[in-house]
Amino acid sequence: MDLLTKTAESLWQVIAVGLLLGAGLPALFAVGLRLIGTADPGTAAPGTAVVGARSRLAVVAGWACFAIVVIAIVTGILFIMADFLDHTFGIDLF
């Protein structure tokens, strides 16, 4: 491969990871907030406020979104700390 092809391939990888982590994780967090905050309007009488009527599936899906975001953050921190952990404590994670 020539230099231009390698550069273009690397550029697309950086763009893909940037979109996934830079826009994907905040979007997933927003979806989690929306799922947890969503009430089921079918359980309330017409014209009344819907309070506390959430689908259990929506709440579980919302917490799953939060768990994915937290796992990604912890993995990123551990990836950054990999050399420090290996050098200081002998822990080889990646």
Rank of each mutant, 00 (worst) to 15 (best):
D2N: 14
L3V: 13
L3T: 12
T5K: 14
T5N: 11
K6S: 14
T7C: 11
T7P: 01
E9S: 10
L11C: 07
L11I: 03
W12D: 11
G18Q: 02
L19A: 10
L19Y: 09
L19R: 06
L20M: 10
L21S: 11
G22R: 07
G24K: 04
L25P: 00
L25S: 00
L25R: 03
A27E: 00
A27L: 10
F29E: 10
A30F: 11
A30C: 06
G32Q: 02
R34A: 09
I36D: 03
I36A: 03
G37T: 02
A39S: 10
D40W: 03
D40Y: 04
P41G: 05
P41H: 03
P41A: 06
G42F: 14
A44Q: 09
G47Y: 12
G47S: 09
V51A: 08
V51S: 06
G52I: 01
G52D: 02
G52A: 01
A53C: 08
A53H: 12
R54H: 12
L57Q: 11
L57E: 10
A58K: 10
A58P: 00
A58V: 00
A58I: 00
W63R: 12
A64E: 05
C65F: 07
F66V: 01
I68C: 12
V69S: 08
V70E: 08
V70W: 12
I71T: 09
A72F: 08
V74Q: 07
V74C: 08
V74E: 06
I77S: 07
L78K: 03
F79T: 12
F79M: 13
I80C: 05
D83W: 07
F84D: 09
F84W: 15
D86G: 07
H87Y: 11
G90K: 04
